[in-house]
């Protein structure tokens, strides 16, 4: 049923359930497919990252003529680890794709292996991001939470400036994006954990293949988001 078709139905003319527009199935007791839930959720996450991207561009100064950007934006040399992590995420996504295919074919062993590999690579990605984070800190870009909340006396903002992520706002965005994206990966890992539990249960539960496919879909999506964000970071 097209959107237009739905919206132009004249409900007052058609009592009964045989009329043209009425195609609702009887859904009593049937499981609901989580696909739509995931789809809407991906819409929300897309909005989130689009907004981050537009904030990025605005702060960077592409809207200079409209009065944005302060000229303090500097290029960053991407740490090599950023490339490595991206590669890991690509591999992870491929593994999930494999798991989805295997699950569709009913190949249990292959599905279990690829599922584990995919999740493990996801964890590796997260670890890589944390290492990257520490590298950045070591090179002088502190994320100085401790000098924020926990200084009880005095105004935290009056701390010496070098304790903070100062200078290049591109780095600040890098932190922000890594944090928000990382949280979504963590969420994906929770779903992955559930899928793993079910995949190793004695009998294969109904709907497992679907869960694995949807996991894979979420993973591809997070990869896409990461690539887009990475592209932004390269733009500086």
């Amino acid at each position: 049923m097209s959107v237009i078709g739905t919206l132009t139905e004249k409900p007052w003319l058609t009592p009964g359930i045989d009329a043209a527009a009425i195609d609702r199935p009887d859904n009593d007791g049937r499981p609901f497919d989580p696909g739509i839930f995931l789809g809407v959720f991906l819409g929300v996450v897309t909005a989130l990252f689009l907004l981050i991207a537009s904030a990025y561009l605005m702060r960077m100064g592409v809207h200079g003529p409209l009065g944005h950007g302060a000229g303090d934006w500097g290029a960053i040399t991407e740490p090599p680890l950023l490339w490595a992590n991206t590669a890991i995420l690509v591999l992870s996504s491929l593994a999930f794709q494999g798991a989805g295919i295997a699950a569709g074919r009913g190949a249990r062993r292959a599905m279990r292996i690829t599922l584990i590999v995919g999740g493990a690579l996801g964890i590796a990605f997260l670890v890589g991001q944390v290492v990257l984070w520490r590298e950045l800190q070591a090179s002088g870009y502190f994320l100085a939470i401790h000098s924020g909340l926990c200084t009880v006396s005095g105004d935290p903002l009056a701390q010496p400036a070098d304790l903070f992520i100062s200078g290049n706002p591109a780095i600040a965005f890098l932190y922000l994006i890594m944090a928000v994206h990382g949280l979504h990966i963590v969420g994906g890992l929770v779903a992955w954990g559930r899928a793993i539990r079910r995949a190793f249960a004695g009998t294969v539960p109904a709907g497992l293949a679907r869960s694995v496919t949807l996991c894979a879909r979420y993973w591809h999506f997070l990869l896409l988001v990461w690539l887009a964000m990475f592209g932004l970071l390269l733009m500086t």
Partner: peptide
């Protein structure tokens, strides 16, 4: 997410959007 998916998915037989 629940409100949206419930409206999209869980309407009973005969309950069209309109």
């Amino acid at each position: 997410l629940n409100y949206v998916t419930t409206v999209l998915q869980a309407r009973c037989k005969g309950m069209t959007m309109m």
